[in-house]
């Protein structure tokens, strides 16, 4: 589904991402972990067109996507969320999710001005599907709240709901559990798992919460200083000496 080969980018002298290969298969939940500053978010930005790599190539659904604009890549079904809480602050929850359906709406300008059949059918469909997604993410009771007035945990969910509205084939979640309490984290895990089951969406996840990562990932890749130092099944990676060293430093090799 997603193939990255030899991706590299440096900022000045800092090699933020260096020849990283990544291959995510259809239907997988694939996690990307690594210490702070390892280059995970930079890698997301490279994959989604927000940054241009110095070298390397990216294939999504067997098509090269490098050099395309973020909105074009999003239109192909590669949708990302952001590490910081990124929502439409002054729009209601309902409106925000409705905005997410943008790429699936085609009504032309004439149809819009006369409120023609396409435009009306589209609005009805969006309304219906918005409800569906709000129900799916448990945000239905919050429909009429402004984004900025939601509690933090719900804002994080709203960002995911918005991404889901954009019809992802591959969903890139950047630290979705940051700042969530254990109950919310559990809800999140269920949502991610059913995103795959209900909608058949592949998930690529950046996360620091190890419990979450180990419990839901099919495969994990570990980044450190911009390089991939390990990849494999959760338990393999957890045992990998290089990974333990990256996280805990030398001398803790037996601690895990």
């Amino acid at each position: 589904m997603l193939e990255a080969r030899g991706l590299s980018i440096s900022f000045g002298g800092l090699k933020a991402v260096e020849s990283v290969d990544l291959s995510v298969g259809k239907g997988e939940i694939f996690s990307l972990i690594g210490p702070n500053g390892a280059g995970k978010t930079t890698l997301f930005n490279l994959l989604t067109g927000f940054l241009k790599p110095d070298r390397g190539e990216v294939l999504f659904m067997d098509q090269p996507i490098l050099g395309r604009q973020p909105h074009e890549i999003a239109g192909m079904g590669l949708i990302r969320t952001f590490q910081k809480t990124n929502i439409f602050a002054e729009a209601t929850v309902k409106e925000s999710v409705a905005i997410g359906f943008h790429t699936q709406r085609q009504a032309n300008i004439v149809d819009i001005l006369v409120n023609g059949p396409n435009s009306r059918a589209e609005k009805r469909a969006v309304e219906e599907q918005t409800r569906e997604i709000l129900a799916f993410t448990g945000l239905l009771p919050w429909s009429d709240y402004l984004g900025k007035n939601l509690p933090y945990g719900k804002q994080r969910l709203l960002a995911i709901a918005l991404a889901l509205a954009a019809k992802p084939r591959l969903l890139l979640l950047d630290e979705p559990a940051t700042g969530l309490n254990p109950v919310e984290t559990k809800e999140l895990i269920e949502i991610i798992l059913s995103v795959r089951e209900t909608y058949g969406i592949t998930v690529l996840l950046i996360e620091h919460n190890m419990k979450l990562v180990i419990s839901i990932s099919d495969r994990i890749a570990v980044l450190n200083f911009g390089q991939k130092i390990a990849e494999g099944k959760p338990n393999e990676v957890a045992q990998n000496p290089a990974v333990v060293e990256a996280y805990l430093g030398r001398g803790f090799r037996n601690a895990s």
């Binding site: 909105h71 990124n86 929502i87 602050a89 905005i99 009504a107």
Partner: peptide, 22 residues
């Protein structure tokens, strides 16, 4: 319309708007 939705999205958060295909 969808156009107004897109405009509001850009006003509120251009980066996020781009990330969902606007």
């Amino acid at each position: 319309s969808r156009i107004g939705n897109a405009l509001i999205a850009i006003r509120e958060n251009e980066e996020l708007a781009r990330s969902i295909g606007i």
